[in-house]
Simulated scan of single mutants.
Amino acid sequence: MWTLQDAKNKFSAVVDAALAGTPQEVSRRGKPAVVVLSASDYQQLVQSAVETRESFAEHLLAFPVSDDNTEMERAQVTPRDVAF
């Protein structure tokens, strides 16, 4: 893992390593901050996420239902008073 200062000083080495296929982690103030990776690796991650993402309808249909298939009980919420 690179410190931010080292990564700034040796940015070409960080980029070269990322292009060689090894993502480079950079820390800031001792905590992991960012990862530098090649554009092709990034595109693969994005494409994979798009391909595995379910549709909004599928997400809604995945919500749990009760055992007897009746509508689930909803919390009773009282709206707060708002003064204008």
Rank of each mutant, 00 (worst) to 15 (best):
M1C: 02
M1R: 00
W2Y: 15
W2Q: 14
T3I: 00
Q5I: 07
D6A: 02
D6R: 02
K8R: 15
K8N: 14
K8T: 12
K8G: 09
N9C: 00
N9S: 08
F11Y: 13
F11S: 14
F11A: 13
S12V: 15
S12L: 12
S12E: 15
S12G: 15
S12D: 15
V14K: 09
V14L: 11
V15C: 07
V15N: 10
V15P: 00
V15A: 14
A17S: 10
A17N: 07
A18I: 09
L19Q: 13
L19S: 09
L19D: 15
A20F: 02
G21Q: 03
G21M: 03
G21W: 02
G21K: 01
T22Q: 12
P23K: 01
E25H: 06
E25G: 11
E25N: 06
V26F: 04
V26K: 06
V26H: 04
S27Q: 12
R28M: 10
R28G: 08
R29V: 02
G30A: 09
A33L: 11
A33P: 10
A33T: 07
V35Q: 04
V35N: 07
L37Q: 13
S38M: 01
S38E: 02
A39S: 13
A39R: 14
S40C: 03
S40N: 14
Y42F: 13
Y42T: 05
Q43S: 02
Q44S: 08
Q44H: 06
L45S: 08
V46D: 11
Q47T: 15
S48L: 12
A49D: 12
V50I: 14
V50G: 00
V50W: 01
V50Q: 13
E51R: 03
E51W: 01
T52F: 06
T52S: 15
R53M: 14
E54M: 10
E54R: 10
S55C: 04
S55W: 00
A57P: 03
A57S: 13
E58V: 06
E58L: 09
E58H: 09
E58P: 05
E58C: 04
H59C: 08
L60V: 07
L60T: 05
L60P: 07
L61T: 13
A62Y: 03
A62D: 14
F63N: 11
P64W: 00
P64K: 01
P64Y: 00
P64I: 00
P64C: 00
V65M: 13
S66T: 14
D67E: 13
D67I: 01
D68V: 03
D68A: 06
N69P: 00
N69F: 02
N69K: 04
N69E: 06
T70H: 08
T70K: 11
T70Q: 12
E71D: 12
R74E: 15
R74N: 06
R74L: 12
R74F: 04
A75K: 03
A75I: 05
Q76N: 14
V77K: 02
V77I: 11
T78F: 10
T78N: 15
T78L: 14
P79S: 12
P79F: 07
R80G: 07
D81F: 09
V82K: 03
A83H: 05
A83L: 07
F84L: 11
F84K: 06
